[in-house]
Design a protein around this nucleic acid. Structure first.
Lengths: 243, 243
DNA sequence: GTTATTTTGTACTAAACAGTTAATAACTGT
DNA sequence: ACAGTTATTAACTGTTTAGTACAAAATAAC
């Protein structure tokens, strides 16, 4: 119906600007706190991070952290939840349905590898959570749902590949996910100790490209039926182009 | 000379017992502190661990920790060094020279997998050290030496396999080590979050056996020449017996 | 057996830290 | 315009923590 034209004679722009500039903006404040806290927790761990330091780096005050998140652990848990959500949502946005199984699998693996590389804070948070025996993940059902989606996606892909006569029958999608994650995660999580001990060659541009390709190859060799492995080796160059 | 007989008329036995029980034994005291500290740091991290708690769990006092190790960081660094030494020494003790390349590789991978599983404290310490950007590893040249030995061992094995006409030419031992480590490490390091999100099926006896076998297979498929892969798949059951 | 050195225990301190109080400012619906 | 909610600040509190001061005991040296 007659929406706002008749009612806002002064300044529509003014109203909008007001709304944007408005001093109170709880969502932004919370988002700001969460952002800062993510960096701090990822950098220093749960016990290493300092509420005072987080507060200093936000645009607001320490009191507001307690106001919105209760206590340190509450803040940490929200950070964790948010980080998982962001990452999984990005992963779920991957469009694989229109691709052939082999291409889809190659793309999924390469994407996962790259995605981990570009989200080191998330990786560090997961490491920290493992140090804490994942006890803060326990409560978060929301996260479990998001993740089981990733497995479902893989299961569908496995079925498609098997039906196309290219993949092995009865692949275990969970195990496959474990394998893909192992490579992608380790590549980021252990970069510091590994390069300290063995040099940086695996972590420069060239080295990473190699590792990524290798990761794709190993997974494909694992899922493909023997007769298709040969074909794949031959066609390798053409597939797995950048993400 | 005339030690204490003349001075201890009351109880010679008492004195001896005294001597056995109370004798100075700095090495044992230090080893005891390091043991306790390893557990504590592995469990709670560098900032999470408490000197007072470590002290309580030792047979000695807080004062001694500072006496022997200077400060908290000094203690942590010694713990780290000791942990790396123990683990790498065990790995270097693996006898592979008398085995055929394929068996040797299978044994190496399976051993690494098992070894990580049975040293969770070490894994956790490495995770913690990665959280700290491996800055405490920087100084420890001793550790670097131990580790480059592991790579050398792999390089020799690769050469042997290639000479036997079974492995690919020009394998990169460092990359191979990265792959083996990725599986073995991730399997322990991310067990908590992974099982929380996806269930425990991969981490019970059956699941672990599967993952281990799988890890061996993937590595062998990677190093073997195509024509030997077929043979390997066929003979698989016979190889990779327990460790 | 006297003196010097190394090892151990007790009690303390100063700083860092998570969390709170209490007062007030800004906004909202009626 | 006022009652009620939401947002914000600065100063404060009690506890935890790494690290120390001081002294005493055990051992080694002479």
């Amino acid at each position: 119906m007659g929406e706002m034209q008749g009612k806002a004679p002064i300044s529509l722009e003014g109203m909008l600007a007001d709304k944007q500039l408005r001093k109170r903006n709880p969502e932004k404040v919370q988002a700001n706190i969460l952002n800062v806290a993510l960096s701090e927790f990822a950098e220093k761990g749960l016990s290493g991070a300092r509420i005072d330091e987080i507060a200093e780096k936000t645009k607001t005050s320490k009191r507001m952290i307690y106001y919105y998140f209760g206590d340190k652990l509450g803040l940490y848990q929200k950070v964790l939840e948010e980080a998982y959500r962001e990452v999984r949502e990005a992963e779920n946005a991957l469009e694989l349905a229109h691709l052939q199984p082999v291409e889809a699998m190659a793309k999924l693996v390469a994407f996962t590898f790259d995605h981990h590389v570009s989200h080191p804070d998330f990786i560090r948070l997961v490491m920290i959570e493992n140090i804490h025996h994942a006890e803060n993940l326990e409560q978060l059902d929301s996260i479990r749902l998001l993740n089981s989606g990733a497995i479902e996606q893989l299961a569908i892909l496995c079925r498609k590949g098997a039906q196309a006569g290219q993949f092995q029958e009865g692949l275990n999608p969970l195990q496959l996910h474990w394998q893909i994650s192992a490579f992608s995660f380790f590549n980021v999580s252990n970069q510091h100790t590994f390069s300290r001990l063995f040099g940086e060659t695996l972590f420069d541009g060239q080295g990473q490209k190699l590792l990524r390709q290798n990761c794709v190859d190993m997974i494909l060799r694992y899922v493909l039926l023997p007769e298709f492995r040969i074909k794949y080796e031959a066609a390798k160059g053409a597939l797995n182009v950048k993400s």
